[in-house]
């Protein structure tokens, strides 16, 4: 079981209190009815699924109830950091295992 630091509660709590909520930093297009099928596919279905550093959303379901973002290594399952929703991607130490994860 993972231990996850909620940036709102500022506490490290067991995974059971949280729900994983998919890849982070995917913004719903504001003109959703106007975009092409390809753009919709990209937004709705395609995912980075990196082996290495992943940016993802979590929700502190059984705590404060709020969504936040996390950076986690999907090989070791270790969290690099967590940060509040709406904040930009944090700068990571150079030489991260997966450059692609930060590219989108």
């Amino acid at each position: 079981m993972l231990l996850i630091h909620c940036p709102y509660c500022n506490e490290e709590r067991p995974e059971l209190e949280f729900r994983h909520a998919g890849e982070a930093h995917i913004a719903r297009p504001t003109n959703i009815t106007a975009i092409s099928d390809e753009e919709f596919t990209q937004f709705f279905f395609l995912r980075d699924n990196p082996k290495g550093i992943a940016f993802e959303r979590w929700r502190h379901m059984h705590g404060c109830g709020r969504f936040f973002n996390a950076v986690r290594d999907t090989v070791t399952d270790k969290f690099v950091t967590t940060y509040e929703a709406g904040q930009p991607r944090p700068d990571l130490p150079a030489g991260g295992e997966n450059e692609k994860g930060a590219g989108k």
Binding site: M1, L2, E15, H20, N49, R72, T74, D77
Partner: peptide, 11 residues
């Protein structure tokens, strides 16, 4: 519940 390549999971 989370994506991973670790070939291990939660107890």
């Amino acid at each position: 519940q989370y994506t991973s390549y670790s070939q291990t999971g939660g107890l």
